[in-house]
């Protein structure tokens, strides 16, 4: 099938084409799904190398299930997020068993020598957000990332986390409140207080 035609095809149809031997389908699916899987895994693990391994493993499982994929039962992206979630949960548990430094104990963001008065640049705030995400309990972190960064709907998150929509809403709300509390303790460091004074 021509490449420009394949661009319009759904993930699920591409997976069926892959299973039928189409040589371009895997490349397109990789281009669509690998960045999402990597971004999600990197935020869950805060470790680029481990996130790459998880992404490759999740995609490998997708290739293996392709011949047996049952159309209409799940979205391919939702299925992949679920696999990434489970792989990351296993890795984090293994870290704890090894006694590795828990993300919750990760050092706070370094200011890089810049003063709070001068304010931190936007990238520092995003870094602070990602570190704060690392301090949330696993399920809250998964739900918040899927909802607010990956942009999934609550029913989609429910499918990923195997939860009802109400449970998803509760997790994301609590996670967001917890993030606010963590970041509020660093408002001065992140330059928010200076902005408030300027606005006043």
């Amino acid at each position: 099938m021509p490449r420009d035609t394949l661009d319009q095809v759904s993930d699920e149809s591409l997976l069926v084409l892959y299973a039928n031997g189409d040589p371009d389908a895997a490349r397109l699916l990789t281009a669509r799904l690998a960045p999402r899987a990597l971004g999600y895994a990197a935020r869950l693990l805060s470790d680029r190398a481990e996130a790459e391994d998880v992404t490759q493993e999740a995609m490998l499982r997708l290739w293996k299930i392709a011949p047996d994929w049952r159309r209409g039962e799940a979205q391919v992206s939702t299925w992949l997020y679920r696999v990434v979630t489970n792989l990351c949960t296993d890795l984090r548990r293994a870290r704890v068993r090894r006694g590795a430094v828990a993300l919750e104990d990760a050092p706070e963001v370094a200011s890089g020598g810049r003063s709070a008065e001068a304010g931190l640049i936007e990238a520092d705030r995003v870094t602070a957000l990602e570190e704060a995400l690392g301090q949330l309990p696993d399920r809250q972190r998964q739900a918040v990332i899927l909802r607010h960064i990956e942009g999934l709907s609550n029913p989609e998150i429910g499918a990923v986390m195997e939860l009802g929509v109400e449970a998803v809403e509760s997790l994301t709300a609590r996670g967001k409140r917890a993030l606010g509390a963590i970041l509020a303790g660093r408002k001065a460091e992140l330059g928010y207080e200076g902005e408030e004074e300027e606005e006043a």
Partner: peptide, 20 residues
């Protein structure tokens, strides 16, 4: 944060496509 998401390296994409 969504805009700043990590992009897969060429090496990772190559490994995934080789698996495929």
């Amino acid at each position: 944060a969504a805009e700043r998401g990590p992009l897969p390296s060429a090496a990772l994409l190559a490994r995934i496509e080789a698996d495929a």
